[in-house]
Structures are given as C-alpha cells and as structure tokens.
Design a protein around this nucleic acid. Structure first.
Lengths: 252, 252
DNA sequence: AGCGCTCGAATTGCATGCAGTTTGGGCTCG
DNA sequence: CGAGCCCAAACTGCATGCAATTCGAGCGCT
C-alpha cells in the first residue's frame, strides 16, 4: 500500500500558524539572517495582529529551533553552532534513510510523477537566487517525507531540514546545486525500482555530501561563539572603529 | 572526547515552562489519560497563572505532539492512532541507534556509574506502580541522549520517547518491566566495552521488543477512533446507562 | 423511549493595559 | 580621547476583558 489514510497536518489556519509559516519561510530563504532581531510588537504590527499572537508564534518557532528565546530579551533568529549543524545533519541522515526505506517500491506512478515535476522545478530555478534553490531542494525532501503518510516523520524531517537550511546560510560557501539535483533524480529512480538498500545509500551519500560541501571546517578551534566569529575581523578593528552589526526591520 | 561543551537546554524557568513540565509529567505518568480535557482556565487556576500562560503552554505541548489542539475546541491529551504509535517507535529506533553509536566507547567512568545508578533506581521501583516504572525507563533513554551533548538529539529523543510513553498507556497490556531492565544493563555494558555495532543492535532489539510487547495488534479493523475504542464496552451499555467519561480537574 | 432543536453556560481567540527588565545614547569625569 | 554611569525608551512577562464559537442540558416532537 502506497498510501495510508490521509491525515491533515497539525498546522491549520489560525493567525499564529500563518505568522509561523511566514517567518519560517523568511528564515529559510535567508530574508532573515541568523541573529536577526524579532521584536514582538514589530512582528505584530507587520502582520496586523497583537503582540500576544506574535509572541505565541515565536514560541512555536523556538520549539522548532528556528528562533532563540531568552527571558526578557528580544527574540532572534537562531544561530546554531557548527557542532549543532553537524548534529542536525547526522539526525537528518538517519531520518531520511528511514523515509526512503519506507518508500522504496511503494510509490504510485502519480507520486513518482509529482517528484519528477518537483525536480524539474528545481532545474528551472537554477538561474534564480541561491535562496530559492535551497528552499526547493529542502522542499523535495519534505515532499518525500509527506509520501510516507506518517505525520510524525513529516514533522521531524521538516524541522530538521529547516534547521539545516538555516545552518547552510551560516556556514556554506556559494555551492553549486547541480549535483544535488542529479542526486535527487537518482533517488527517485532508485525508489521507483524499489531497491531499498540502494536508495538508503544514495540518500545517505546525498545528505552527507551536501553537509560536507556546505559546512566548511570548524574554524581553527572554536572557543566561544562571538569571540572567534569576530576573530578574523580583529585586525581591522585595531586601526578602525568597531563596525556596528546590521539591525533588522524597524517600523516605518 | 566524552563531553562536548555543556549547553543548557532551552527550557528555562518561566511559568510556561513550569506548566509544560508539570503537564508532561502528568501525561507520561498517566495521571492524565489520552483524551483528557485540558481547559485553559482550569489549568490557569490550578497553576496560579492566567489563561494566557496556560494557553501558551498548551501550544508548546501541542508542538511536541502530547496534546491535540483544534480551533475553538477544548485541548485534549493526544490520542495517537495505532499507526502513529508504530511510526513513533520506528523513528525512535533510528534516533536511539544514533545515540548509542555516538556514545559507544566514549563514556566516562562517572557517566557509566550514573547510568548504572539510574537502572538501580528502576530496579528498586519495580514494586511500585506501572506508571513510575514506565517513567523511569523512559528517563533512562533520555539520560543516554543527554550524554551525547547534542541538544537537538536530546530534544528529538525526549519528544519521541514521551510520545511512545503516551501510546503505551493507550495500547499496552500490563507488561513486565523485568526484561527491559536487563536490557538496559546489557546496553550499558556494551557501551562501556565500546562495541558500537553490538550496542546498536541491542538498542534496536530492545525498543523493537518493547514496541511489540506493548502494542497489541491493531484491533480487527480500526474504523475510526471513538467507535472502536468503545466497541469493547458496547455490551455493558445495552443493559446499563452510558458511563460518563471522567472529566478532569474541576475547580474547587 | 428515541431523536432533534434551542438557548444559556462554558470555553476559546484575540487585543489591550500595566509592571518590571533590558538597552543604548548621552553626559560626566578621569 | 576613552571609560563609566544614568536615565529614558524599548521591550518583554503577564493578567484581564470582550466578542465569537462550541457544548450540553433540557424541551418538545414523533
């Protein structure tokens, strides 16, 4: 059976969910960079809701690991450490191996067509911005997860994939999406053939190479976040004023 | 290296988190059964906070899958379907294999002692209620996850383990905790020996057998939640009044 | 008795208000 | 010229109030 009983995902259409979706998308498209401030009333104003709702949305996103919430402090887009990025990818590999294991040989023709259509879209977007390519690539993986019809698996794969997106914007060098697209195609065809072992191996290699291509080595020896992030800029500072970090989203 | 940099878990000490912890515990100890109602103001009153806070807490727990939230409807403790229970265990197996893979041979003597102490506690609790045994067993797995020092892994393992707890209270027959305890000990010793493949196999088998022991077959053919849940009680009803389902936490 | 309807009580969705904390710009002083 | 202090503005933590929706007990009808 390729399809179990359909089940709607938890996120319906109340205002909180709408804001969550909007912010999530803004984050993974890097419109909001890691560290960007997210004041409750600015969000509320922007989305036409009260602070209560914005706050609630931030709480949800914090639960997903996309924003960081510290008591009495303004919320910011999460800034995962390099180690957390690696951890996220490790988890992601296991989860997605599970996805393709469940899916191998179980896909309907329609589902395979849907997957191919998605990769076609990725192909067409190759000319566009990096952000869109990354989003589409991520959505391919989430689409796969959906096809398992396991809401829990969908949730976890989505979450960890978004997290990985976030880290890519932190640690990646401008990377070519070419091979990723080819690997997506290979995965689809192996899924269609029903070779579970092969497709698990493909997925493993795919994610591993994305991680390795993207996550450049852990910077000499990370002492603690801010200090060594700023280290490369230290020499500039000696002969110059400290550069003020860019802020985000002031009200009009 | 057995220990990475320590990192505090996200859940600090604001009122929302306190309520979350309390409810989580109540749920996994089956003080709150699946389906139990969780009205916002009852919770608020019980914990001495406003509805706003109770509501926020419910949102967090919903994100973890422990409660179900439907628009304009009273929140209830989640009632996972049998299929969701299986899915949760499948995911859990993969995640915890990852945990022990990372841990094999990397544990300090102190950590091993801590694990053994925990299992001793499980042992001592064998006389107590099922609920406590289940909680302790779950906490053993979470303790393992903590030792990876990967906050993300901790979060996912905890979540999915709690979920599994929840399903156990739905679908399990009264089970013996004996073998589980022995299996925990076996896992510890394999971890200490550093045999990654062995300990992954042990963990896999452990969780699989817990799932199989606990999750009794999917009841003939599940049509929809309520109907077949009530099926076994149907005969009582014919000759008797309908038994009112227990409600939760009325105000004093 | 069983079934459907109606209306008040219970409950949620959301905005607003107030108090306490953090932030950062300017002023003073070394 | 730079370091430290101070205070107002910005922001969060939380409670409360009001409108909209759901729930369920009772009533009437069959």
């Amino acid at each position: 059976m390729a399809a179990r009983a359909s089940s709607k995902t938890s996120e319906s259409s109340d205002k909180v969910s709408v804001i969550c979706r909007a912010l999530r998308r803004a984050i993974i498209e890097q419109a909001l960079e890691p560290g960007a401030k997210l004041p409750e009333d600015a969000l509320g104003e922007r989305f036409g809701v009260s602070r209560t709702i914005a706050r609630h949305a931030l709480g949800q996103l914090a639960a997903e690991g996309l924003v960081e919430l510290r008591r009495n402090r303004i919320a910011v887009v999460a800034t995962p450490s390099w180690q957390e990025a690696r951890d996220a990818f490790d988890i992601r590999i296991e989860l997605e191996r599970l996805v393709v294991r469940q899916l191998a040989g179980k896909l309907t023709k329609a589902q395979i067509a849907e997957l191919n259509a998605h990769v076609d879209a990725e192909d067409r977007a190759r000319g566009g911005t990096d952000a869109v390519s990354i989003r589409l690539a991520t959505e391919f993986h989430i689409l796969l997860a959906h096809m398992t019809n396991s809401p829990i698996l969908v949730r976890y794969v989505s979450e960890v994939a978004y997290r990985c997106c976030l880290t890519l914007s932190l640690y990646s060098r401008p990377h070519s999406t070419e091979c990723a697209i080819n690997e997506h195609r290979a995965i689809i065809s192996a899924l269609a053939k029903g070779d579970a072992a092969k497709v698990m191996e493909l997925m493993h290699h795919h994610l591993d190479s994305v991680a390795n291509r993207a996550l450049v080595a852990p910077t000499p020896q990370r002492g603690r976040d801010l200090l060594d992030i700023l280290a490369p800029y230290a020499d500039e500072v000696t002969s110059n004023r400290v550069i003020k970090l860019p802020k985000v989203a002031r009200r009009s």
